[in-house]
Design a binder for these strands. Sequence first.
DNA 1: GCCTACCTACCAATCGTTAGGTAGACTGTA
DNA 2: TACAGTCTACCTAACGATTGGTAGGTAGGC
Lengths: 211, 211
Amino acid sequence: MKQIDPYFVEPRELVAEPEISDAKQRVLETAERLFMEKGYAAITLRDLAEALGIRQASLYYHFPAGKEQLYIEVVTRVFERHRAGMEAAIKAAPPRLRDGLLAVAAWLGSQPAVNFLGMMHADLPVLSREGAQRVSRTAYAAMFGPLRKLFLAAQARGEARVDNPDLLAGFFISLMDGITFSLTQQSHLPRQVLVETAVDLLLHGITPQSQ
Amino acid sequence: MKQIDPYFVEPRELVAEPEISDAKQRVLETAERLFMEKGYAAITLRDLAEALGIRQASLYYHFPAGKEQLYIEVVTRVFERHRAGMEAAIKAAPPRLRDGLLAVAAWLGSQPAVNFLGMMHADLPVLSREGAQRVSRTAYAAMFGPLRKLFLAAQARGEARVDNPDLLAGFFISLMDGITFSLTQQSHLPRQVLVETAVDLLLHGITPQSQ
DNA sequence: GCCTACCTACCAATCGTTAGGTAGACTGTA
DNA sequence: TACAGTCTACCTAACGATTGGTAGGTAGGC
């Protein structure tokens, strides 16, 4: 509003994070941790407020539209970050499918766990129809987009036979979800072993030799 | 109480289904459909009662201990059925890993969808600690048991290199979960295609030839 | 004087749960 | 066959607790 030049673009519109106050940022971060950990329905606004050390009603200062808006902002942030992180990881990795997949897995492992299938199954039905659609689209684009490109590039290099890149992306995400789950259980194996096993499985299968 | 002989065992204790009235059976079936579809937290007892055409308080006649008991009975039934169904499917299939996996997938496809990862992520944290433990153990034993045996048998026949059968079972279940999810989305591909793609992926990977 | 970031106090709705009642089918006894 | 008693499978009515949400106030910094 301060600018008159119609061609001027606020610098912040070019970066991922628009103007968000420190206090709101803190709410978003804590909400992300809780929502991703236990799901939308299991976390009440009072739980969140208590974790923040404030009163529940104060949350409405930052998110006047309430719980669903807060959740959607959290989820949008999470998936936008994942899209950017996955693309950066792929870019930085050597141009081989295996390296790309390991890089993506490493990125996912470096972030707070997001249970994609679990979220889609339990959280979406509780949201409003528009909210569910928006979350679904955001999540789908963010998670499948980078992987789709990765698989197509591998196919172009002759490294993989790819009938349906989205299907492959979905399978990869399912495997990552399985690893996330496995680690929450009384697991023995370290994440790195699970990840490498999953990637090798996806690349070569479990049939010995080339039978 | 009618029996005095301490070695006597009620015949019904030997079979899977203990005496359950038709009315209770109906409640269990409807509850299963709703809980598996939307999760524990998203279904209220009033939702369930409405689906049954009765009043919500009447549910306490069949399940005096309340919602959690009902849910645990539902889940226990589901997983016991899946264990038996998966084992039967494997037994009936030719003794090759691919046939066994396809048989298991076919069985899972023939039943109302159960989103394993989603359930574990969203429902367990809401249950009491004992309830969560019991569900977790039941689910784990039922889903992993038959698959573990299948993979070990395949390894013994030289059909697969199996470092950790439980890990493989987990990956397979993750893939099945992914398929279940994929089918709920605006999907194009029929289940059979998804299943065969997943099984071939698990067997041979996506690397062309035997590179 | 205004803006930020909270606060207290309350609300209606909904949750799981409890208490107590009842129509109708079934069972044993006279 | 008639009656009494019991059991099944519901019902109505209410409960306290918890939920997301609203209204209005306020301390402190710019």
